[in-house]
Measured scan of single mutants.
Amino acid sequence: EADPRLIESLSQMLSMGFSDEGGWLTRLLQTKNYDIGAALDTIQYSKHPPPL
């Protein structure tokens, strides 16, 4: 049985245009305790590393 928090967070992320191919988004949301903001921060950080 999927956690209702996961279903809600995942559906919101999917509606933003993200995909869960391979389950990466599910794993990220689980790691971030279903916090969409924290997940988005992680995605943003990985796409744009800080300048040295």
Rank of each mutant, 00 (worst) to 15 (best):
G22P: 02
F18C: 02
Q44H: 13
R5M: 11
M13A: 03
A39V: 14
P51Y: 14
L29M: 05
Q44P: 14
A38L: 11
S9C: 13
M16L: 10
D3T: 02
S19C: 12
A2T: 15
L14G: 08
P50G: 13
S9E: 01
D35F: 03
L6R: 05
L6M: 06
R27V: 04
Q44Y: 12
E8C: 05
G17Q: 02
L10N: 02
E1L: 04
A2M: 15
Q30N: 07
I36Q: 05
S46Q: 14
G22A: 05
P4F: 04
Q30D: 02
E8V: 09
T26D: 00
M16Y: 10
F18T: 02
W24T: 12
P51I: 12
W24R: 14
P50W: 07
P4Q: 08
G23R: 06
S19Y: 10
P4R: 09
L25M: 07
D35S: 08
I43T: 05
L14T: 15
N33V: 02
Y34L: 04
T26Y: 03
H48G: 13
R5I: 03
L40R: 07
T31S: 15
D41T: 10
A2R: 11
Y34H: 06
G23V: 00
L52I: 05
Q30K: 08
R5K: 13
D20M: 01
M16E: 06
K47C: 08
K47W: 04
S11W: 06
D41A: 11
R5Q: 10
N33M: 06
L6Q: 07
T26K: 03
L29Y: 00
G22L: 01
L25P: 02
E21F: 04
S46I: 07
D3P: 06
A2Y: 04
S11Q: 14
G22Q: 07
T42G: 08
G23S: 04
L6K: 09
A2L: 10
K32T: 11
W24K: 15
P4T: 09
L28Q: 02
Y34T: 03
S9P: 11
G37W: 07
L6T: 05
E8P: 09
N33R: 07
L14R: 09
K47G: 13
L10G: 01
I43A: 05
E21R: 07
S11R: 15
L40I: 13
E1I: 07
Y34D: 02
R27E: 12
S11A: 13
S15W: 04
G22D: 13
T42P: 01
A38F: 03
M13Q: 00
L25C: 07
L25H: 04
I7T: 15
G22R: 07
G22K: 08
S15P: 03
I36N: 03
L14C: 07
S9K: 05
S15I: 05
L25E: 04
L40A: 04
I7S: 12
G37R: 15
L28E: 05
S15V: 06
K32L: 10
D35P: 00
D20H: 01
I7H: 09
E21N: 09
A38T: 06
H48I: 15
G23W: 00
A39Q: 03
P51W: 08
L6F: 10
E8R: 13
P4E: 09
Q44K: 15
E21W: 00
S9H: 05
W24L: 09
L40V: 10
G17W: 00
R27Q: 09
L10T: 02
L29A: 01
H48M: 15
L14F: 11
K32N: 14
E1Y: 05
Y34R: 03
E21T: 11
S19G: 07
Y45L: 10
S9N: 06
S9L: 07
P4G: 05
I7L: 10
T26I: 04
Q12C: 09
L25D: 03
A2Q: 14
D3A: 02
Y34F: 12
L25T: 03
P51N: 15
T31V: 13
Q12A: 08
P49W: 12
L6C: 02
M13F: 05
T42F: 13
Y45W: 12
D41V: 03
K32D: 04
L40K: 08
L52T: 15
G22N: 12
S46L: 13
A39R: 00
R27F: 01
D3K: 01
G37D: 13
I43H: 05
P49L: 14
S19F: 08
K32I: 08
R5D: 08
T42A: 14
L52W: 11
N33Q: 09
Q30W: 03
